[in-house]
Amino acid sequence: MPSIVNRGADWFRSIGTEKSPGTAIFSIVGNVKFPGLVEIAMGTTLRTLIFDICGGIANKKAFKAVQIGGPSGGCLSDVFLDTPIDFDSLTQAGAMMGSGGMVVMDEDSCMVDVARYFLDFTQKESCGKCTFCRIGTKHLLDILDRITKGEGREEDLTILESLAKDIKQGSLCGLGKTAPNPVITSLKYFFDEYVAHVREKRCPALKCRALIAYYIDLDRCARGCEVCVGSCPVEAIFTTKGRKKAIDQAKCVKCGECMAVCPKEYDAVRKVSPPSLAPIIERPPEEKIKEGA
């Protein structure tokens, strides 16, 4: 502000692009090395912002998506990295400037789950006045919920698309008009992830709890190490015949604690999707006798 007052509006307008002059302040969070508030000139590309200014994706992961404009903004994939950040380009891509919020997501983010998360927010925000926002967002959320639980049906994909479009067009106020954006953009740019959830009951990012399973790689597990057993909140980990550890899939609640505590030098806990890929290891009989006694 002081520099605008000192140097005048013409100076401020000389920064940025013709249609979106000046600068914008973004709050960048998520899987970047240096999250925080950044003021950039309009027209800076997403790549410059994410990879140069914010240091790129943390933990050597790959970039997957960036969600721009708060809960009702859109999720853009890597093909949009060279899009300049200004009002028109973002709107054209299906996102928006909105509140200047930017969530960067790495390869471990499931886009269906992300859409579900944002819809959960907007659905709760709906005031309940108009039909589309009040009931429509609830249906979108219910369908996304179903898909992340592995209960998605083929027709859900077409319903999601047409309902989201109708809510966007038919709602009374701005909340409903923008609430379906996360669904519309993730369907558009990450359709294969939806398809994997619905047709193969598989979560490619290994995020949706109902669609994954943990197992212990017996070749990597160390004899006698008991760290995972202690961490498991539901006593799903048992000792196999070879004195290694295995997970009882019927008991496992997929919290991921064992994976987090397994010592780095062993790194024996694996995550797979769909859950049927996890090898089934029987509990040794003596354990059963103990349980019964």
Binding site: T131, F132, G136, H139, D166, Q169, G170
Partner: peptide, 15 residues
């Protein structure tokens, strides 16, 4: 377009 929106709103109400 009109019919699509109307049907959609009506289905939502009926749900």
């Amino acid at each position: 377009e009109v019919r699509s929106l109307q049907k959609s709103a009506f289905k939502l109400l009926m749900s």
